[in-house]
């Protein structure tokens, strides 16, 4: 879902930077509380996993592919502010080292995949899972939270391009939603499998945020 250079006009480049930069700043400040020697390796390996998993595009219908965002996964396991930092780090590396996502679109990509996706994933997860440690409920919540995070990111991405004036909303939005409804299922499945595995081997990692 990485927006390339050219899809955003100057106004939307500025707007997306103005929206995402302060929120990343808040994430940096907020994670100060949790940034201890135990959290750093977890965040680092989560970032590494998301980078690797994002390389593996899975085919969906009709000659289109999708890949994991991992934003909901990071938010569920490490909390939403840590997830914002993790996603931002991954997106900056993808942009600068691998030309995945344009430099002018970096603010936009951070906004949709680094901020909107983890927060929507987190909200939906907390809404549905509550403080439950029931495995079925947690996994159901994980699936839906991940699906919603993909949908939300695709809607915000669409709006950025629409407001840039390059395509109208009634053409772009149904098309984007059509594909991302399916890509979100992949996101939900992969995230649920990872969380399901972790409930078996390291259940406190999954349930630690339930207490908050």
């Amino acid at each position: 879902m990485h927006i390339p250079d050219g899809f955003l006009d100057t106004k939307m480049i500025a707007a997306s930077l103005a929206a995402s930069a302060p929120l990343v700043g808040v994430a940096v400040a907020r994670t100060k509380k949790v940034f201890d020697d135990r959290q750093i390796p977890k965040m680092s390996v989560m970032a590494a996993f998301i980078f690797a998993a994002q390389m593996v595009n899975f085919p969906i219908a009709g000659g289109t592919s999708g890949h994991l965002l991992g934003a909901a996964l990071a938010a569920i396991l490490l909390g939403p502010w840590s997830a914002v930092l993790i996603m931002t780090t991954v997106l900056i590396i993808q942009c600068l080292v691998f030309l995945d996502g344009g430099l002018t679109a970096l603010g936009g990509n951070i906004l949709l995949m680094g901020i909107v996706a983890p927060w929507v994933g987190w909200w939906v997860y907390r809404l549905l899972a509550g403080k439950s440690t029931d495995r079925t409920r947690v996994l159901g919540a994980t699936f839906l939270a991940s699906w919603c995070s993909t949908i939300a990111a695709s809607v915000v991405g669409t709006l950025l391009i629409v407001f840039s004036g390059y395509v109208t909303i009634n053409i772009a939005l149904p098309a984007m939603l059509g594909w991302h409804v399916l890509i979100g299922i992949g996101e939900g499945l992969i995230t649920s499998v990872v969380v399901a595995y972790l409930t078996q081997v390291k259940s406190e990692l999954v349930f630690q945020n339930q207490k908050a």
């Binding site: 879902m1 927006i3 593996v56 000659g63 289109t64 592919s65 600068l96 344009g102």
Partner: peptide
């Protein structure tokens, strides 16, 4: 990994704005 276009690229192709990104990369990586 599938080499098919992702959701956004596919929409850009179908709806005729993929050309906006061609040759627009501003950094060398």
């Amino acid at each position: 990994a599938s080499t098919s276009p992702d959701g956004l690229e596919r929409v850009a192709e179908d709806k005729g704005f993929i050309h906006l990104s061609e040759g627009k990369q501003v950094v060398k990586s």
